[in-house]
Design a protein around this nucleic acid. Sequence first.
DNA 1: CGTTTTTGACCAGCGC
DNA 2: GCGCTGGTCAAAAACG
Length: 175
Amino acid sequence: MENYQMFLPVSLPSNMALNSQVFDNFHGDTSNGMLSSDMKTDKLIQAAQVKEVVENGGFVGSETEIKSGGDCNKKKEKKTRKPRYAFQTRSQVDILDDGYRWRKYGQKAVKNNKFPRSYYRCTHQGCNVKKQVQRLTKDETLVLTTYEGVHTHPIDNPTDNFHQILSQMQIYTPF
DNA sequence: CGTTTTTGACCAGCGC
DNA sequence: GCGCTGGTCAAAAACG
């Protein structure tokens, strides 16, 4: 990883960074046409509140909904229902550092997006939190980040400078 | 030299 | 059953 400074300029300082949008799950979205315009504006929130999206045990039932989209996002849900949190942020960079250590384990191109989707995994042992970052074709300035799972360990605070920033960002950590 | 990124292959679910 | 799409693995490269 490089310096945090790279994301600092984008995610923190400007007010724009504070504007994040959270979606309820993607059940309908799947066709990749996701993010209908209403959804975007519908839940505009400040960084302070990121609401849990998804699900809970609705695997069986939700499964049906999922297939309608044809997307495979939640294929595994039936077995393990892990909470999924999604929000999108305006940023010029794909890497939005939240203070955790991530290891990229994959990258795939999605059908209706020209930008690839990156898959990350938390490097801490015993922490199987995953996240995927995807830039939206519709708005190149928007980055959709989806978190899967909950961190059970403290944040690896990189910099004091970054510290205060992190304090703001911790909010979206679902404890 | 250890860790992370890259990248294609592999696998699984779903539609046809 | 086959092919498409998405998610993960793993080997090699890249990086510090």
